[in-house]
Amino acid sequence: MTWERAIHALRKGHCAGRPGTEDFLLRDGSFSLFSRGVILPGHGAGVKVASIFPPNARRETPLPTEDAIFLVVDEEGKSISYILDGPEITRWKTAADSALASEMLSAIDSKTLLVAGAGPIALALAHAHVHARPSIERILLWNRTLQKLDAVAQALTSLGRPIDVITDMNEAVSQADIISAATGSVSPIIRGRFLKPGAHVDLVGGYRPDMREADDDVIARSDVYVDFRDTALDAGDISQAIANGSLLQDDIKGDLFDMVRAAPERSSRATVFKNAGGAHLDLLIGLAAARASDRSDRIDRTA
């Protein structure tokens, strides 16, 4: 996989019809078994199956808190064609989702990227945003626990840009042309009064209604876009803003299906993109990865 292949797969996939989705959730104490199915016209179908057990993080030898697979169902024969690693597909699809939006919403000459968070998704977002905007000259990193950023900063040296770990989030926001946040915050960490005019804010965390990364002022100062209306309306940054009146549902300028069909007009206002995800994204990335693997296998067998 490459970022170019991943972004292209999402762009092409959003030219087709909208997906149909359905979720399934079973709970037993702190254990959750979660499944999300999707049918995407013209591309096939897929099912994500995830086993989620937060106590794994507290073991003497910690284990992953989530394990997942993604099943790809072929469009033609309706057979199960691929079984793919769930977390890896999530990493690629989440960052490519944000990068595709950045190609359409962020300033072409963006120079400074601020990434909030220290997990694998934050690392992927930095790579994807730099791919989408090669004009980026500097990367700022922020996380509540600074020590967790050491590995992230080291991993990002391959991008060939200066990496600065910062402690003052407000100061970093005032410098950034693109802000990408992938945190578990339940209260805003990005405040609108520090936002540069024309900045692009990419909100990836805040997937639950009680979670939030940007305050009402960020929403009020920005043109708001989402990746998929069906999932974004349940995410805290959107649902809380609608609930308190700082955002009307009709004020959402569009989702990726709208944006790919008709490119948004850029203005001097800041832009917000809510990356809330969806199983159709997993399907599109899964298909792109599987097809790339098939091509590689054929090349290897021929060599």
Rank of each mutant, 00 (worst) to 15 (best):
R212C: 15
D216Q: 13
Y207R: 10
D223V: 13
V226H: 08
G206F: 00
G206R: 05
Y225R: 07
R221F: 09
G205P: 02
D217Q: 14
A220Y: 01
A214P: 12
D216Y: 08
F228L: 15
S222Q: 07
P209E: 02
R221P: 06
D217K: 15
G206C: 07
D227I: 12
M211S: 11
F228C: 07
Y225S: 07
Y207A: 06
Y207I: 10
G205L: 04
V204P: 03
A199E: 01
A214Y: 13
V224N: 03
M211F: 08
R212M: 13
D227V: 02
G198D: 01
F228H: 12
I219Y: 08
D227R: 12
D216S: 15
V226L: 09
Y225L: 08
A220M: 13
Y225G: 10
V201W: 00
D215G: 13
M211T: 08
G206M: 00
E213L: 09
V218A: 04
A220P: 01
G198W: 05
D216R: 15
A214K: 10
G206I: 00
V226F: 10
A199I: 10
L203A: 05
D217I: 10
R212K: 14
V224S: 02
V201D: 01
V201C: 02
V204C: 00
Y225N: 03
H200T: 11
I219C: 00
V226S: 11
G205S: 06
D215N: 14
R208A: 09
V224H: 03
A214Q: 06
G206A: 05
M211R: 12
Y207M: 10
V218I: 14
E213I: 03
F228R: 09
D215P: 12
V226Q: 02
P209Y: 11
D215T: 14
F228K: 12
